[in-house]
Write a protein that binds this DNA or RNA. Structure first.
Length: 708
DNA sequence: CATTTTGACGCT
DNA sequence: AGCGTCAAA
């Protein structure tokens, strides 16, 4: 409470750099003929002309927006050029944009500041130290006379620069010079803005990408004002101008308030604009939203936000997912397996590159599945250290197998595969080889299944619990409980998993030993006041973040196995390795790669051999046959080896549970429904609870409903 | 069932 | 660990 008033919160200088319509710029650099004409980047093309994900300013001038479909854009602006996101293995491939984003980060890094990658095209920068440094250099000449500090600013850095509350940057600087009292905070912002001007110029010189920036005393404000003047502009927010900004800022525009929390502020507290928050005390806000969020909002209403800029340039997870809607919904096991294989191939490819560049390996692998009834679930297992596509796919698919056994076949609308929990590699290659041997297969695998069969035959009751202590089964043993354990060894899957099956009892330590070396770097919680007023930015020290910060981006490990031999052009060092250019060329390239990696598969059902690509088509044949049997009330051919009755019962039960959950999730159907909250864009109130006080079913939405 | 494909983080 | 929220192109 009172504490907050003592925290000095205008002593940092924070910038947010955001690339202008980034994906379009990337495409414009590839094909300059696009420049100066309306253009947008779309994903896919078949459904209503594809989904637009980036629009350049020429097209925006014609009324084209994101959210639109390619068809809509053509209608609004017939001359618009729609560039498609590259597709690899049948799914959108964002590699070239990730690579371009990394280029930008590398330029920012040259300024020796604390840089936090906030997204593929955005970074927060803590300029406090750099500003202090320059300030001390300047004031060493003439101590305390800050009126002399400003003239040394390079005015070239301020072209395209705006200052909130002033007609021009010059006017602001003039006011600072003329001020009786030295406006130290503003002077710091001015120096920060000068640095940001240099940064943006450097980014343009080295990448040819334009960006915009916001400069303020904290992240929320820097982000907000960055969006005020675009493109290719930067905006400074002196603390004095916060009231003016707040009175003109809709709550939903503020980072973190664009969703349900924002809806709550509008619907229950009547805060349309940020200035309305000022009507509430910290206690009043905390009463409804919890201490943490209440405090955060209260401080924010005064223009304060204490979230640190965390030095991190690498993503914490590498994942991909694909949606399958309408007729594309995955209705057979085979299709699911096929697509899991595609996702796994992409993830492995990206993991391998990540390993070469960043010398780290993912320890965790998560499969996400969304079903047609809106239910979603995820399961995690240990990531195989080998970064082998078949292996990763097998691990992911073994999770899927279990889901099928528990849930039965339900059309799948989305699959996602995410690798995370990265740890730095210890480079001693001999050591790692031995280590990998023991690390093998935390996920599912036959080690689990074999033992499980034993327990089954022992007649599953409490006595078996002792035999199969879940802690001895590795991280994945808990995923689906008993249901997963009923499975017999499935010959169908033995192909890819069998290599890991060997010697179930050879090593009693097994996965236990690898389960948890988690570094548990305590994450600064979102709204917590996490730093002191003296040194805001965590000192770059011994963490892996430091390493990535100073690590030259062109270094890569020689020991890395090159599974895929490069064709044509010699392998380029890392950052420049973005393939692209000619789309046809690159896609051919990729396909070659895939077939090389995946080789030829044998159809599980008829034994015929196909390339993975033909396999999908071939499996449609089986799928059609299955469908026929289903329609005619015939039992599936090979779906499950267990007795029909057992399987049915299990599926029924799981389905009932799932249906109940789904119904619960959608209390208000399509329309705006009963809610008195007019502006709620989100239809589905989940169980998330902004009010931690009651553990009961108080969703944010419940605040809008009829009073009980 | 249509933005889709990401990614970070909070809650429990 | 699993689910939910929020955000960005």
């Amino acid at each position: 409470m009172a504490l907050s008033t003592f925290v000095a919160s205008t002593n940092r200088v924070i910038a947010l750099v955001d690339m202008d319509c980034f994906y379009v710029q990337v495409e414009e650099r590839d094909d300059p003929s696009i420049k100066g004409t309306p253009a947008a980047v779309v994903q896919y093309k078949t459904y209503k002309g594809g989904g637009i994900i980036a629009v350049n300013y020429e097209a925006r001038a014609k009324g084209v927006t994101r959210n639109m479909r390619g068809d809509d854009a053509k209608a609004a602006c017939p001359e618009i050029k729609l560039v498609r996101v590259p597709e690899t293995r049948g799914k959108a491939d964002l590699t070239k944009y990730r690579d371009a984003g990394r280029e930008v980060i590398q330029v920012l890094n040259e300024f020796d500041c604390c840089v936090e990658r906030a997204s593929i095209d955005e970074a927060y920068i803590d300029l406090t130290e750099a500003v202090e440094k320059k300030l001390s250099e300047m004031s060493s000449d003439c101590e305390l006379d800050f009126s002399n500090t400003l003239p040394s600013l390079d005015m070239d850095c301020f072209t395209g620069s705006f200052v909130m509350g002033y007609d021009s940057t010059e006017q602001w600087l003039e006011a600072l010079r003329g001020s009786e009292m030295p406006q130290l905070d503003d002077i710091k912002l001015a120096i920060g803005a000068e640095i940001v001007g240099k940064m943006r110029e450097a980014v343009y010189k080295k990448t040819s990408f334009r960006c915009s920036a916001g400069i303020a005393h904290n992240k929320v404000l820097a982000k907000l004002v960055c969006g005020i003047n675009k493109p290719n502009k930067q905006t400074v927010l002196p603390h004095k101008s916060v009231p003016q900004l707040w009175s003109a800022t809709k709550v939903s525009k503020v980072r973190g308030l664009g969703g349900k929390l924002g809806d709550y502020l509008i619907g229950r507290l009547g805060c349309e604009n940020m200035c309305d928050l000022g009507k509430f005390t910290e206690n009043e806000l905390s009463a409804g939203l919890g201490a943490k969020t209440g405090m955060w909002l209260y401080r924010l209403s005064q223009g304060y936000d204490d979230e640190a800029v965390t030095p991190r340039q690498l993503p914490k997870s590498i994942g991909c997912n694909k949606n399958f809607f309408g007729p594309e919904a995955l209705r057979t096991k085979e299709k699911a397996k096929f697509w899991i294989t595609q996702l796994a191939a992409e993830v492995v490819e990206r993991l391998q590159r990540d390993l070469e560049m960043n010398n780290r390996k993912a320890k965790s692998l998560t499969l996400h599945v969304k079903f047609e009834d809106q239910n979603a679930l995820s399961r995690t297992c240990g990531a195989s250290p080998q970064y082998n596509p078949e292996r990763l796919a097998a691990d992911a698919y073994s999770i899927m197998e279990k889901l099928y056994q528990a849930l039965g076949v339900l059309p799948i609308n989305s699959l996602g595969l995410i690798a995370s929990k990265f740890e730095d590699e210890i480079d001693t290659s001999n050591y790692t080889k031995i280590n990998d041997f023991f690390k093998t297969k935390p996920c599912s695998s036959s080690v689990l299944e074999v033992e499980v069969i034993d327990t089954d035959s022992l007649n599953s009751d409490s006595s078996t619990d002792k035999l199969v202590d879940s802690s001895s089964l590795g991280p994945d043993s808990s995923t689906l409980g008993i249901s997963g354990s009923l499975q017999k060894l499935d010959e169908n899957n033995s192909t890819s998993t069998s290599d890991t099956v060997k010697k179930p009892s050879s090593n009693p330590i097994e996965s236990n030993s690898i389960v948890n070396p988690l570094p548990s770097t305590s994450i600064t919680s979102k709204h917590a006041v996490s730093h002191s007023n003296t040194n805001v930015t965590p000192k770059k020290s011994e963490t892996s973040e430091t390493k990535e910060h100073r690590k030259p981006f062109f270094s890569f490990s020689v020991t890395a196995p090159t599974i895929v031999s490069p064709r044509k052009s010699p392998r380029k060092p890392v950052a420049a390795a973005a393939v692209s250019s000619n789309e046809e060329g690159s896609s051919k390239l990729t396909i070659t790669k895939v077939t090389q990696v995946l080789a030829v598969e044998e159809c599980e059902r008829c034994g015929k051999k196909f390339s993975p690509w033909d396999m999908e088509t071939h499996k449609d044949y089986h799928a059609a046959k299955d469908l026929y049997r289903e329609i005619n009330g015939m039992p599936p051919l090979d779906f499950d080896l267990r007795p029909e009755t057992l399987r049915k019962k299990e599926i029924e039960q799981a389905s009932a549970e799932r249906a109940a959950k789904a119904a619960q999730k959608r209390p208000r159907g399509r329309g705006k429904g009963s809610s008195s909250c007019s502006s709620s864009k989100r239809g589905r109130p989940m169980s998330a609870n902004p009010v931690p006080t009651s553990s009961q079913s108080k969703t944010i939405d419940s605040y809008f409903g009829p009073k009980s």
